[in-house]
């Protein structure tokens, strides 16, 4: 018996078994959570649930304004963060040299990615809501979420740009193109799939976050659609938070339904990103 334990082959089997079990401990709950949300959420999922206003203090009716609010927020986030993020990635990939400034930018990006989401909420409250006097509004929320997803977009886009072969740039320059022409016509088009992937992932992140919108945009209960970017709005994640902790006697099914819509949105976004990545990996010819 003791000899068996000293046999490296046997040791290996035991260790691998434990590693496998550890992996199961992580993966099985994920599957269970998704299954639970789908099983219980799908019972309330209906056209009405998706397109109706909430009624009876959110204890009945649908989640339409939350879906609309989240869509507006996501759109606003991308409008703000996508150009800055892509340009920032272009700077890092095509213009910057290995120097202190570049390192500082990289550190700033790493740090932005690590700032707690609730701190983004404070920042958005301080800068956009109060200092710039946007009030709690879609605008303030979008800007806050935009700063939050910036590192996601920059990192993905930079990687995409750097994976474009150097020869494309050399060919373009050798044909008399300027630096910007080279980037615009010989580099960017071929980095687009990677940039798109980053954009979709940041979309899913912006749709799912709650803490940054708590004080910058979220309306507790607002059974009408926002009219302008200076309006407050409901949002899916905040709605789920409200339903599960702030309103007594809400049917659990409504919460599962909201969770299902939110998870569905996020999972679809991630699938789209994976498909884009996979499709272009196959198509890529260099």
């Amino acid at each position: 018996m003791i000899r068996l334990f000293k046999d490296p082959k046997f040791q290996e089997k035991v260790v691998f078994l434990f590693l496998f079990l550890a992996t199961l401990i992580i993966i099985v709950p994920v599957v269970l959570v998704i299954a639970l949300i789908v099983a219980r959420g799908s019972s309330v999922l209906s056209w009405e649930f998706l397109t109706a206003m909430p009624r009876m203090g959110m204890r009945a009716g649908g989640i339409f304004p939350a879906i609309v609010g989240t869509s507006y927020l996501v759109a606003g986030t991308l409008i703000f963060a996508l150009p800055i993020g892509i340009f920032s990635a272009i700077y890092l990939s095509e213009y910057s040299r290995r120097n202190a400034l570049t390192r500082l930018i990289e550190l700033a990006i790493v740090n932005l990615a690590g700032v707690p989401s609730v701190v983004y909420g404070l920042f958005g409250l301080g800068l956009f809501v109060l200092f710039l006097k946007f009030g709690a509004s879609i605008l303030a929320g979008s800007l806050t979420l935009g700063v939050m997803v910036l590192p996601v977009i920059v990192t993905a886009s930079r990687e995409a740009l750097q994976s474009v072969p150097k020869t494309f740039r050399e060919v373009s320059y050798s044909l008399g193109a300027t630096r910007w022409q080279t980037i615009r016509h010989a580099v960017l088009p071929h980095a687009l799939p990677g940039i798109l992937t980053g954009a979709v992932l940041s979309l899913s992140r912006a749709a799912g976050e709650t803490a940054p919108i708590l004080f910058t945009v979220a309306a507790f209960y607002l059974p009408r659609l926002p009219k302008s970017v200076f309006d407050q709005a409901m949002a899916l994640p905040y709605h789920l938070y409200v339903l599960s902790t702030q309103v007594p006697n809400v049917k659990l099914e409504l919460q599962y339904g909201t969770a299902l819509v939110l998870v569905g949105l996020v999972v679809i976004a991630n699938l789209v990103a994976a498909v884009i990545r996979g499709y272009f990996r196959v198509k890529k010819q260099w």
């Binding site: 050399e170 044909l175 008399g176 193109a177 022409q181 010989a186």
Partner: peptide, 29 residues
């Protein structure tokens, strides 16, 4: 660089159409 053209060691077409490869220089011009 327009006056002094260059052909690289390895064939280096851009992954776009034949026409667009040829038109790349003139278009930028």
């Amino acid at each position: 660089r327009k006056k002094v053209g260059m052909v690289f060691a390895l064939p280096s077409p851009l992954p776009i159409s034949i026409f667009e490869n040829l038109a790349y220089g003139p278009r930028r011009d």
